[in-house]
């Protein structure tokens, strides 16, 4: 059963004069899911997040979180949301603990103990040191500790692992899974496709400020790709109940998509005139490339004259 939508964007548009940073974004994020935002720089991910947080006013359309209008009720929205900015700056004159005290003080002192515990035990930070002596990655870890400690329903993480080492990235992935297990909703914007693939329930792909695709990652994980060469070069008809479809032809071979049970497929393959076969999965990269790869068609681009 689908969970109720928690973040709803309806025709959300942000324009700066003739330039659109975000155009007619209609989507929803359901309660308790991990939702990925994908797209190259300038595709509108951060603009979307800032509109959700009430930091910017939409040119058209509206967004709501828990029914609160994100612009008019920005304060109520931010009570329910913890946000990790993509480009993080902190007051260098404070110690790590000082920053956590300051940030939790802005939320009535909530979450300080948990933030300090995450920072020290999980992120291995020395909270007595001044923040100006922290590396970029350490600052990011500190902010992540605060974000995961906030007693909120929604976590919005804008490129949360961009400055982290591989082991810290794993820690962040685990914290996201933990947050989901506790019923928190997580919006995760990033460029590392493998991370998004690993934790997200659904992924939205943006291009030039438009939402171009929403992928259900559970369905995608059930997807198998078959590269098959049939004897005689001609494929036999596929039984409808198998859930097989042709993605494309590659020379004498066919690239097939399969979304269904494995056993009937294997039984059918055993009877079919298969000369060669490879079965695999498809990573998020190939989906991403459909919209942002060299062969992607951009409807917004003006035709060459």
């Amino acid at each position: 059963m689908d969970r109720p939508p928690l973040i709803v964007s309806d025709g959300l548009t942000k324009a700066y004069g003739p330039t659109f940073a975000l155009r007619d974004l209609s989507m929803d994020v359901r309660q308790g899911e991990v939702y990925g935002l994908l797209g190259p720089n300038g595709s509108g991910k951060t603009t979307t997040i800032r509109l959700w947080l009430g930091l910017m006013r939409p040119t058209r359309g509206r967004a709501t979180i828990f029914g609160h209008d994100c612009w008019r009720g920005g304060l109520q929205v931010r009570r329910l949301v913890s946000y990790l900015p993509g480009e993080l700056r902190m007051p260098g004159s404070l110690s790590g603990l000082g920053v956590l005290k300051f940030l939790s003080g802005l939320r009535d002192g909530e979450g300080l103990d948990r933030a300090a515990a995450i920072a020290e035990r999980v992120m291995k930070l020395d909270l007595r040191r001044k923040v100006r002596k922290y590396s970029t990655g350490m600052k990011q870890k500190l902010a992540l500790a605060q974000a995961f400690a906030d007693p909120v329903d929604v976590l919005i993480l804008d490129e949360p692992t961009s400055a982290l080492d591989p082991s810290a990235r794993l820690d962040v992935m685990n914290l996201i899974r933990e947050a989901k297990a506790q019923g928190q909703t997580v919006v995760f914007s990033g460029h590392v496709l493998s991370e998004i693939e690993a934790v997200c329930d659904r992924v939205a792909i943006l291009r030039r400020g438009r939402l171009v695709h929403v992928e259900d990652m559970h369905a995608r994980r059930r997807l198998r790709m078959l590269l098959v060469r049939f004897a005689g070069g001609a494929a036999p008809p596929f039984p409808e109940e198998l859930g097989l479809s042709v993605r494309k032809t590659e020379g004498p071979a066919l690239l097939l998509e399969h979304r269904g049970e494995l056993a009937p497929l294997l039984r059918w393959l055993a009877t079919a005139p298969v000369e060669d076969l490879a079965i695999g999965t498809e990573d998020l990269h190939s989906l991403y490339n459909q919209f942002h790869g060299a062969e992607a068609v951009d409807e917004d681009e003006e035709p060459a004259r």
Partner: peptide
């Protein structure tokens, strides 16, 4: 300009 306003205004501060 410093980017420090984000840190404050993303919290529940009017």
């Amino acid at each position: 300009e410093r980017g420090t306003l984000d840190m404050v205004m993303s919290r529940p501060v009017s």
